[in-house]
Structure formats: structure tokens, C-alpha cells
Write a protein that binds this DNA or RNA. Sequence first.
RNA 1: GGAGAGAUGGGUGAGUGGCUGAAACCACAAGUUUGCUAAACUUGCGUACGGGAUUACUGUACCGGGGGUUCGAAUCCCCCUCUCUCCGCCA
Length: 422
Amino acid sequence: MLTLKLIQEKRDYVIDRLKVKCFDATEIVNKIISLDNQRKTLQSDTESAQKSMNEISKSVGMLMKEGKKDEAEKAKTQTAALKAKINEQTNQLKEIEVELQKNLVLLPNLPYEEVPQGKTAEDNKVVKMGNEIPTLTNALPHWELAKKYNLIDFELGVKISGAGFPVYIGKGARLQRALINFFLDEARNAGYLEIMPPTVVNQASGFGTGQLPDKEGQMYHCEIDDLYLIPTAEVPVTNIYRDVILDEKDLPIKNCAYTQCFRREAGSYGKDVRGLNRLHEFSKIEIVRIDTPEHSKESHKEMLAHVESLVKKLELPYRILHLCGGDMSFTAATCFDFEVFSAAQQRWLEVSSVSNFDSYQANRLKCRYKSADKKPQLCHTLNGSALALPRIVAALLENNQTEKGIRIPKVLVPYTGFEYID
RNA sequence: GGAGAGAUGGGUGAGUGGCUGAAACCACAAGUUUGCUAAACUUGCGUACGGGAUUACUGUACCGGGGGUUCGAAUCCCCCUCUCUCCGCCA
């Protein structure tokens, strides 16, 4: 969430910036400012009452010690009214703070200046394209290829779990493992520390990264234990730094993690969900960075370069989109999507989203850093997929189908141990 | 699942009603000394939100969370959560 300080000091700027996200913040911002001002007045008032109270209490102690019982009793009688006042005001303060908090979480993150104007995915700006789109004849979509070569059994998944939980078999399973190892190795070579986090998290973690309370319905929830299955490794890996004050010299922190990801995808159906296009469970390697405000943009560039190197090495036709204000997520300050072209479906498939959250997420997480003799200040957090497997697999299968089977990109062969799926 | 113990600052850990935002030690930072390193010594070292010339300084709150008793609570009482140990079960 945005900081109070920013809203107080740059009211008009905040409202103006949020217009890029097609969000009219005027009302909420005004409410927040008025609540905060009330809070300040009330707080000063309450604190001065508390001060008097503390002084009286102290004097009672002293008088008792000196054996002046009568005077002590007399002092005690002065406290009742004060106490009532303090109680009442403290309750009011709490109410105001709750209300303030409620309003604060309603405001999306401010988009950076360079974010394109626009409302929908149509307005996203293609900033780069790479690798040739292959021209295929009689190309099969990946779900048919998966059947033909016995790589993925979707029906079996339905039997065991339900739609959206495919079963990978033989070379299909090995391809998964190869991609996971390839992506992790690439990340490690780029300086990321490998983490293997839990895939089930508590409420506090869900709140920290912003899935809760707004996107509650997107996560699987184990009610008995009140735990959530993670929709992305971002959740556990970023929450490592919840309520943490880091040392400036430890930044930037660069972590990566492979996890299974679980998404309910409530409400989506139709041809978009065919095959591997949209799943309830899938594998993803995520890169996460914690950085200083001064360096986070540089970090973001490096992450984009890393993700681009992956799709390049996999020889997949790709394009990079700078998301417009309206299509960006609630929490992002700027975001680039990577899409690969799936030649049989003739569609671009999103395989990565690389975002800078500025201090928005850090403010929720209370993730701060400290330099020499300065006060702690909020970090910037960033993350991106590097990469999500299913759509990569869809594109690999479709684009590389040949007469003699499906060709594995050179860079993956050491990982798969085979050059063709046939 | 059964039984017990515990939760204090970055860490270890003292503290059974006021002089405790909190001893001591460790870690960390700055300085002094020594030819370097090390050692020794000195000093400093929590967070949040306020007030303030936004420097100095200063107020309030915070000892797992919430409530209560009291003029006054880290300390007493109640509830909750979590952690640890032992037993059982088990990958």
C-alpha cells in the first residue's frame, strides 16, 4: 500500500498518477487525509492525558515510599476522570486507525511515469520482438501432440484431481524436470540464490504480498488449518522479508525458487483453457529481488534481460509488452509481460510477468533496510517468472513439431537426455 | 493425539508491582592505542507514531496477541496464538 506520508505530502500527484490506472482516487484520498488529520489531533490530546496520568502515578509511588499515605490517597482521586478520558480517546483512535487502514488498502500502486496510457490489454505496448515465427503446415495443437506422443494425460488428471491437473508421463515428465533444472541453473548463473520454500502459507503471508484479502477466491484454502496453497513462489519467498530490517550492504537480495503453483482460476473457461493454456496446478520458477529505491529500476532491467535470455535460448518466438496502466495489476508500479508464440494455436501465450512494486508491497510487508546512520526506510520489491512451464511446453511442442518428432532445443538436450520426442 | 515447559531488544539471557525502554554478555558501528592484522580500552547501538526551527531536543506506546485488576503491570488474573521437549503415530 501507499504510505501516508506520500498521500499527505503529494495529494494531487497521487490522484493524478492513479488516473493512468483508470482509478479515481479523489474520494478515498480525501477520506484518508481527513482521517489522518483527525488521528493526529486525537493522538496529541490523548498523549498529553497519558502524560499527566504517568506523572500522578509516579508521585503516588513516591508519596507511599515517604510514608505520606494521605497525600497519596488524595492523588489517587484525581485519576478517575483522566482515566475515563484516556480510555475513550484510545478507543476512538483505534477506530480511526482501522478505518484509515481500510481506506489505505483500497488504493492501487502508483504507476511510473513511463507506463503507457490505456485501459485494456489492447493498449499494451509491444516493446520488442525476437526469434522467427515458424511457418508450419498441418500443425497440431499441443494437446493433440501430447496425446500422439503420450506426454500428457489430461483425462487421467480429471480422474485423479479434476480439470486443470494434467498428468505428465515419460518424456513429458522428463521435459518438465529438464525445464525446471534449466531455469534454476540459469538463475543461479545470474546470481540468484536458490530457495525451496513451503508451498502452503498462512494468512499473514497472503496479506503481505497482497493476495489477501482482495484475491481470496484465487487461492486454494485448507480451512481446517487456515492455510493457503501458494499461487506463486512470490508469496513464500517475498514473505521471508516480512517484518525484517535489512542491512543496506546486503542489497540487492536476489532469490529464485521453483515451486508448484496452485490457482483456482474461478470463472475462466472456454477455449482459452484448453490443454496447457490455463491450469490449476503448474510448475514455475520465480525470481524475486529486494532492493534499494535508488537501484530498483536497474534491477528491473536486469531481470528483464534475464527472462529474455531464457526465451531466446529456448528458440521461441517472443514479444515483450509494456503493460498499460489499465491492464497492470493493482500492486505493480510497472510491469512487462513476456509472451511466446504458439504456432499451431496461432496465439501469443503469456509466460512471464516481470514487475517492480516500488515500495508498495514492502509497505505491507514492513520490509525495510537501514544504511549507516539513517532511519530504516522501505525497500523496493520486484519479481518475475523465469519461467512458468506449461505455456513454454505448449509452444515448444507446437513450434518444434517435425516429420520425425518434436525437436528439443539444443540448450535443453543436456537436461532432457534426448533430442527428439518421437 | 497425550503430557509438560516456554514466548523479553540483532542473538544469548536477567528481571515477581513504581527508580526498567528494560541488567549482563555476544554481535554490530565509531574512536583511542599498537608497525599491519589481532587484542585491549572508550563510546554508541530498538521500533512506531506524534510535537518541534524537521537539527537539537522532546511526548506517547510497545517485553508473543487480546482483555482484566491497580493510582501504577514485562511482573498479578483470564482468553487466544505460537514455539520447544517427552511419549504415541508416521514419510
